[in-house]
Amino acid sequence: MSFGPFLLLALLEGTVMAAVLALTAVGLSLVFGVMRVVNVAHGEFFMVGAVLAWFVTTYLPFPPALSWLVALIIAPLIVAAIAALADTLILKRLTYDPEATIVATIGILYMLQQAVLTLYGPDARPVPAPFEWRIQTPWFGYSGYKLFVVAASGAILTAVWLFMTRSRAGLVMRATQVDRDIARAFGINVDRVYAGTFALGAGLAAVAAVLIVPIQQAHYLMGHDPLLLSFVVVIIGGLGSIRGTLVAALVIGLSDGVISMFFSPTLAKILATLLVAMVLVFRPQGLFGAKA
């Protein structure tokens, strides 16, 4: 294959990556933006979503498309419920102290990982795609499902954006983000907003996982990369800025796709982690975010 088509393939892969990454990272960004805490267990919520999708598609006696669709609804709901529980039982009692919350979410990370290892096992297991359809270009065939993932991510992100800007619940969340004490004074139940935000953030990670799992397989350690890359995206995009997060997801997803294909995935990750560190040190408002 010559360079042009190879680059096209790299860009396509990068776009799929960017789409899923955007969903995951927006979840992390929402939690940071509204609650001002860093959720280190975010990648594990992603992983649990993927593993739940495997359980649903394996044990439901429906055709693949239907059981996958069920998984797309059930898995995020269960993950959101786990997150809401973690928020109420643990984070709330820490009064969202930033450092204690990081330590606690590291604890949650280990607990979720171990629970999945015990109940699901150490194997990577495939989840069938809801449909098989290949697009034939003159140089290579490409999975139609991957393009569907991009479209679906776009649709869900639009829905999230509408929810945040148009709905009452979104307004309440944004009010809490600006000032939690004033929000409380106006009769907003801040505890419920936080639990809801934490659940929504985790749910988005789970949605991303159900979308990607037919391409990637479900494995108990699969949360590591999404966590790392979400961090990268959220920090480079500017902490708490949803728009910056989306731009950064596109940039990181595409460049990761290209660097991974032409050089090595490890090199891509090294560059990404160093970039994050440098951005935090020298430009804490992010590369794309406006000054806070």
Partner: peptide, 24 residues
């Protein structure tokens, strides 16, 4: 580098440097 930041940023910067070290 990392000590130019504090608090949560310091945690993430050290995490990232360690991760980069591992990947290297």
């Amino acid at each position: 580098l990392a000590l130019r930041t504090a608090g949560v940023s310091f945690m993430i910067v050290t995490l990232m440097f360690a991760q980069a070290g591992y990947l290297l």
